[in-house]
Nucleic acid binder design. Structure first.
Lengths: 341, 341
DNA sequence: GTGAAAGCGCTAACAG
DNA sequence: CTGTTAGCGCTTTCAC
């Protein structure tokens, strides 16, 4: 790998000049520019990104913190992030925290500001104080999917109205005539599903439907988790005619559970989720769900991060961007309540 | 962010000494070490990775080239890669090529050797000459899943015997009594599925089963692709009793297609895939498939890359590691042939 | 227009 | 044991 000064020598100029022509800075004579370009081509020169980062005092990468890239939701998001990041010349480093705050902190400490110019946080179960610390140290952080637009987290974020998502799901079920509904709520530990359930509960209240506490169970955000939860729900109260899940994966698992119990979806049991991951439309039956603007959120998050980079940090905490609203996507897993059972 | 020399000053020593205590190099007095550690803690010092990379002449990241991280197979692999990479202190930069050799080349040229110490290639549709060039320029490259152990690619790689995978799939179908079998082969453009089909064809030949050319169709590596392909197959010859797909995703699509056509899987139609992605066991019915050692391949690939890094490059081309053999995983999508149709 | 010089933050000999 | 001296490859004033 040849260096700037090798190129310079070959072109009979100095490194500064080569640097200038390469980045169109400063005025350079046409004839010199040509000689330089020739030398660059001849030596197959490529700028050393780490060296440039050091000299510029900025890094060419963004860190994307996720709990586990193997969760089917994240890759869709990560892809959108990468596309957006490329536009500003950033590479993205993927950081799997495995839900472990320790791992997350270790990542932050090593990477933030020293290898990555900014940090995107996507449900990685990180300590907000840690995040605020890294932000205070000069590396901007943005939360990619904040659930409560009305309640800013004290960190830059893109908000998605998940309470509305929950409400839309609830309303849909109500409109179909369901009143006895089970709920599968994302794992308690993280509490990020609270607002979704709040929205759902709100819809119930508006419809005058009484919520039965026993009809809500917590489950990890996996197909298996939803499967087990649905079994539990249907065991506790076999008469529910619908299940609301705060996430798609568990909803998918609930569909399978119903099938195994011989309850036809949606005829005997309606099931609805939130997010609209790709899998939702491929399941049998395809899942009715409330779609969340994943790609848009990714794009906004990266754009916000870019604005924050190089910004004085006095009011970073107040930045919040709101993504467009969730919307109901009706597919095959919900149907009107049958009144014969 | 404080620097080494700030720490040094505070501890009343020189930067070199701080560097030494931080990396346990050179002998340092216990008393000095303590002073340094205190200063590090007081200033909340964290080493600047880009600066270190420049000084050491090595980069702390690995690049993982995939066609699109949104393909459900890659995240499982990427997760394993990241885990392995962390053990040697590497971060992983994810590079989605979108199957576009141009994008792939652009990535390689920018990142290889300047920000990443090594490159992992996972079915990203890259030009092998490009790869050889980057390897020749000093940045090791390893192909993560080479399909033909008997036919080395001229680049370091971890080989997985996909021909055997195809053969196992074929044998399983034969053993169940199937002789009229449709095949869904991964998209022609890449040709990476050829050996899988070869293995399958070989099994047929051994069993004295004649292959009908018309019973093989090409399809993209997606659920939808497999769905369409299965429809096509079943239209061309409604009498096939089984379908072999060179990948799980299309196999899953085939299951759906069969269902939509009113053909019960596995009773009326057996379907088998290759890979054993997580989705396979969650589908209805769960997919019978030939499992490929994904995590193992990731670990071997990273280990190999690590050995290659810093190695003189004289015989890099000849490195090939073979992962353990694929094995049949029987689930619910295959059954003995019924002789009444 | 182009060059000289300094420095980004760290590591790597080598002296002492 | 610890300090000195050079860089790593690039950018960036600021003279000429």
């Amino acid at each position: 790998m040849s260096t700037l000064s090798e190129v310079a020598k070959r072109a009979g100029v100095t490194a500064a000049t080569v640097s200038n022509v390469l980045r169109n800075r400063g005025r350079v004579g046409e004839e010199t520019r040509q000689r330089v370009m020739d030398a660059v081509a001849a030596l197959n020169y490529r700028p050393h990104l780490a060296a440039r980062a050091l000299a510029e005092g900025r890094a060419p990468t963004l860190a994307l913190m996720v709990s586990s890239i193997a969760n089917p939701f994240y890759p869709e998001f990560a892809l959108a992030v990468e596309r957006a990041a490329r536009e500003s010349g950033h590479f993205v480093i993927i950081c799997n925290t495995n839900e472990n705050p320790h791992t997350g902190r270790a990542y932050l400490e090593q990477i933030a500001g020293t290898l990555s110019e900014g940090v995107l946080v996507m449900n990685a179960n990180l300590d907000f104080d840690d995040l605020r610390r890294t932000q205070a140290s000069g590396t901007p952080v943005v939360l990619c999917m904040w659930e409560r637009p009305a309640d800013p987290p004290g960190l830059p974020c893109v908000a998605v109205d998940f309470e509305l998502a929950g409400r839309l799901a609830g309303q849909h079920l109500i409109e179909l005539g369901h009143t006895r509904i089970g709920a599968i709520i994302g794992s308690k530990a993280m509490g990020i599903h609270a607002s979704r359930y709040d929205g759902f509960a709100d819809a119930m209240r508006h419809a005058g439907v009484e919520l039965v506490a026993a009809n809500a169970v917590h489950a990890p955000d996996t197909v298996q988790g939803g499967y087990a939860a649905a079994l539990e729900l249907l065991d506790r109260d076999p008469h529910i005619s619908a299940i609301f899940a705060t996430n798609d994966l568990p909803a998918l698992g609930a569909i399978d559970a119903a099938a195994d119990l011989g309850r036809a979806v949606p005829h005997d049991l309606s099931i609805i989720g939130i997010t609209d991951i790709q899998l939702a439309q491929q399941w049998r039956p395809p899942l009715t769900t409330v779609a969340v603007p994943t790609v848009e959120a990714a794009e906004i998050a990266v754009a916000l991060l870019r604005e924050l980079i190089g910004q004085p940090q006095h009011d970073k905490q107040t930045w919040m961007r709101v993504a467009s609203e969730p919307r109901l996507v009706v597919r095959g897993s919900t149907a009107p309540r049958r009144f014969d059972n």
